[in-house]
Amino acid sequence: MDIEESKKIIVEKLTKKSKTKSKFYLKDFYKMIPDEKPRAVKNLVNQMVKEEILEYWSSGSTTMIGLKGVGKQASAEDEA
């Protein structure tokens, strides 16, 4: 699948779910692009983080990924 098209699908799906959920496991992205190998999707997601379309959130043990600026932000973790 075309990279730009894949990126579009990811952004669309995350935007659609953003009212209920803002952070996703890497595995959730595999399902969004089922024709691609997990490793290719992983590389695409990390690329999208680099491009600042997506962002990471980590508990320290597990990493989650969401649309940049959506949901609770790392810089606001100290707020109640």
Partner: peptide
């Protein structure tokens, strides 16, 4: 409390 920040720019850990 823990969580949020993952690394420095370009890093995810």
């Amino acid at each position: 409390k823990h969580g949020g920040i993952v690394g420095v720019f370009g890093y995810g850990g």
